[in-house]
Design a protein around this nucleic acid. Structure first.
Ligand code: MN
Ligand code: MN
Ligand code: ZN
Ligand code: ZN
Lengths: 145, 145
DNA sequence: GCCTACCTTAGAACAGTTCCAAACATGGCA
DNA sequence: TGCCATGTTTGGAACTGTTCTAAGGTAGGC
């Protein structure tokens, strides 16, 4: 799997030097419905650049977030998850027991809003819906709850 | 400010020994629209029990969360916020710049849902809506965005 | 091909939280 | 009322996740 050319172009046009490390990190985050931790990314990036440091992974992830190429998901205890799916608006469903994290597109989200005074004068940039529950493995069919 | 008697009763009926430390922590969390960090709670609990340790604050907060008396809010980087407002369903509005966190009751939330297959077999326990934006102090009126 | 600004590195530092084992105190019971 | 067993508290160490630092390395403009 290789970086989509447009991404490399966007990176270059932001003044990035395209280094093997940054390429490796960006490659890991190709593909949607993926929610990797920095450690996950580090592990996978090492396949391409074995000596890549965790610091560089964090630096690169931070830069990608700052330029809107990926999103941070802080839904639960534990490390931040990085989400490359910025192109299709979506929300998350998380198992409070095992931590499994899935993309979802709930109905009705577009109607949720904060009118006038309810917005407390904020400029609202986005809305984030998180469903919490128990996945099939953690709440077997027929369980009391 | 003192603990509402019903809370003490609920705690006792769950087999809790009612110690000065637990009382102090519970007292801090009386009142709604409050979102304290463990440090905040520690500071305030010390007014009643100067020698209370941070470990006890964490223990007690964990217990209160486990018994559903308070909620954890992990909306942003930084420490978890503890929210005693479990009695009225509500959501949150957070300033991505200064971290200000407010309770909101957006319209349309009750219509948000994950039907059938969209739930991926999960038993859904609750839904959490977080609005992210910039507060009046951080995005002064008239700013470009 | 050179040079310089930018990038990467290992490891130390840091923030937030949990763990630990020893001292302590609540509340059931005599 | 006083005693005791068990649950609770404590300070500090340990731990996890993330950021910082300063020294060396390299992309890419010329
Ligand atoms: Mn996602
Ligand atoms: Mn709240
Ligand atoms: Zn699960
Ligand atoms: Zn603000």
């Amino acid at each position: 799997m290789t970086i989509p050319a447009p991404l490399v172009d966007r990176l270059r046009s932001r003044g990035w030097r395209v280094t093997p490390q940054r390429r490796a990190v960006a490659e890991v985050l190709v593909g949607d419905h993926v929610h990797f931790t920095a450690e996950d990314v580090h592990e996978r990036a090492r396949a391409a650049v074995p000596e890549i440091s965790l610091a560089t992974v964090y630096n690169t992830l931070g830069e990608l977030v700052a330029m809107g190429e990926i999103l941070e998901v802080r839904a639960a205890r534990g490390p931040v998850r990085y989400d490359p799916n910025v192109h299709t608006a979506h929300h998350h469903l998380i198992c409070t027991i095992c931590g499994k994290l899935l993309d979802v597109s709930p109905v009705g989200v577009e109607k949720v809003s904060l009118y006038g005074a309810a917005a407390h004068g904020f400029v609202i940039d986005d809305v984030d819906v998180t469903f919490r529950g128990r996945c099939p493995d953690c709440a077997p069919a027929g369980s009391a709850f």
